[in-house]
Design a protein around this nucleic acid. Sequence first.
DNA 1: CGTGAATTTGACTGACATCAACTCAGGTGG
DNA 2: CCACCTGAGTTGATGTCAGTCAAATTCACG
Lengths: 259, 259
Amino acid sequence: MPYTNGMTQESFNSLVTPGTPLETLKTKCATCSMHQLCLPMGLDNNDMDRLDQIIGRRRKVTRGSTLFRIGDSFQNLYAIRLGHFKTYQLNREGGEQITGFQMAGELIGMDAISTDLHHCTAVALEDSEVCEIPFDSLQQLLVDIPALLRHFHRMMSQEITREQSVMLLLGNMQATQRFAAFLVNLSSRYEARGYSPHTFQLRMSREEIGNYLGLTIESISRLLSKFKKEGLLRVNNREVELLDPIRLKAITAGTHSYT
Amino acid sequence: MPYTNGMTQESFNSLVTPGTPLETLKTKCATCSMHQLCLPMGLDNNDMDRLDQIIGRRRKVTRGSTLFRIGDSFQNLYAIRLGHFKTYQLNREGGEQITGFQMAGELIGMDAISTDLHHCTAVALEDSEVCEIPFDSLQQLLVDIPALLRHFHRMMSQEITREQSVMLLLGNMQATQRFAAFLVNLSSRYEARGYSPHTFQLRMSREEIGNYLGLTIESISRLLSKFKKEGLLRVNNREVELLDPIRLKAITAGTHSYT
DNA sequence: CGTGAATTTGACTGACATCAACTCAGGTGG
DNA sequence: CCACCTGAGTTGATGTCAGTCAAATTCACG
């Protein structure tokens, strides 16, 4: 399997499965190679070092535990080094509305910049690890390193466009399309990270998927069964194999046609 | 009516009604007093001047015409000086999905930073006027004025949280709640700008409201009638008067109770 | 193995969409 | 000035997609 870093799905799983000794990883966020903050920018070594220096402690977050909560005061952004998270808001009755699923390499907490308070809660979907990035320090660095500033703006902007596409999904698409879009999105994100785009674990429950997509758990279950029946994918618990990504993408497209 | 700037709804309308000579306004974006970019920051006069200098030409956008289109290359952010806009994405069949309605004082175009291409189209809902803010120049200025940098980040972050609350609305709320939330949101934004929170014009058509809220034009019409019947508001074409904002806010809250 | 939680499946219901007819305001031209 | 037209909006009848409720099944874990 020709994935960019030669890491197999299995070795990845072994790293993030609960119980695996994470200590075997390097304890420093060496030149940030794992997260998107400096990866695609072409910083020189000096800048890299400075970025490394402001990056705070690594922090392990066990499955189900909370990285930050709605209302917490904002100090840090978090770069996910390992694992998966969900972020959610609360509706007026205390129910969750999941606003996103984040994976290794992604940055969370940017919604808190506006008011210095977190507007969502972030919970680890599996044993995970993050780098704390103290926002005050980061801001000082942004002034000194224009490339970093530009990149940071791109990342915030990317979050805006990501959310816009979720609005499109929730406002415009049928259940079948939504779920297909969800799978295609996961697939492409795994591919971008060098993992198989065809075979991956759903890190979230059916309930969480449904919540995110504005559907019920039963609908998700039915859609999985339907896709299975139509030869679009294989499912085994949370293990998914996409058998016909082309057709899946086509389903994503048609607004009201597909049944 | 004790609104902050003493501007009445009528005088505001007279400014933005098609045909009114906009030339009576000052031609320079004098110390940016109209838009949020520097308003709440406490910049000194020197900084203000520098900000003024980078702000490009004022641009009038007539009702129905386009400020920028999906796929356009990104050069400027736009601060709305006058009027209202809608922004929308396209689904795969070419249909609009409106992602937001923007009014005077708001900044649009931030979703384009990530890829240097606009991800949405912005159309004026009435004769409007914007300030062009060349993003390259702005970025240089951000480096020199930390307060401006911080404020710019707050504005981007605010856009992220705004979209998250729309996701909550689309993913979690019933039609009645969505529409109530929409009205309450408009109301509070007008209030923040010194206009009446109770009486205002809907600048967008029923169809556009429905599109934004993930509902049909007929549903919006029925909801208006229902609210009218229940004494929550008065409607006359696009003129709305909220008669019971308290109850309207209450409706926003309950997820599945209100019928 | 056994127990509770998660998921699947089926039958039924309901909220909102769709389709269609109608009203009304604003503009146009005779 | 008024008849006509057009497009936006309203209202009613009907259909359908996904939600709700309930039961069966599988899975996770002690």
